[in-house]
């Protein structure tokens, strides 16, 4: 089962749309609520990062009986130092974004904590690809 969502950079009004849709799908599929919660946190943070930091992006969610695989691919400035970006509290968010309560530098750490695997590859000036996997059977 595959689902695709488009994400617009800068459009905070729609931020969370993909996470909310995927949550409904997973509920209908009777996925363990604990797993749903984790997936939703990780996906929301990834989605908001595209809105807050990139120009546009695409989210692909692929669900089978064993795992949920999410790919968040954006066109944007990229991340020059991924290790630094992963640190709690590190953020380059604008003043406007911070005023809204984003930009705590907690999104990527939340993604790491709430996914079974997290892979980030990024190319400065081009964009970022974030891949998240959550296993349904342990």
């Amino acid at each position: 089962m595959e689902f695709n969502y488009e994400v617009e950079g800068g459009n905070f009004a729609k931020a969370g749309y993909a996470a909310s849709s995927v949550k409904k799908v997973l509920k209908e599929l009777n996925v363990d609520p604990k797993i749903i919660k984790r997936v939703v946190v990780a996906l929301y943070e990834g989605e908001v990062n595209v809105v807050a930091h990139a120009y546009r992006g695409n989210i692909k969610v692929d669900i089978d009986t064993e795992r949920i695989f999410i790919e968040i691919k954006d066109e944007g400035p990229g991340i020059p130092d991924i290790n630094l970006a992963m640190q709690v509290g590190y953020s380059t968010a604008s003043a406007m974004v911070r005023e809204m309560g984003f930009g705590a530098g907690m999104g990527l750490p939340n993604m790491k904590r709430n996914a079974d695997t997290l892979d980030i590859s990024s190319s400065v000036g081009k964009g970022t690809v974030v891949e998240l996997t959550t296993y349904l059977v342990k």
Partner: peptide, 13 residues
């Protein structure tokens, strides 16, 4: 909390 990622990561149902 006023930080959305903090709530996302730490608040409970």
């Amino acid at each position: 909390s006023d930080l959305l990622s903090d709530v996302m990561g730490n608040a409970d149902e």
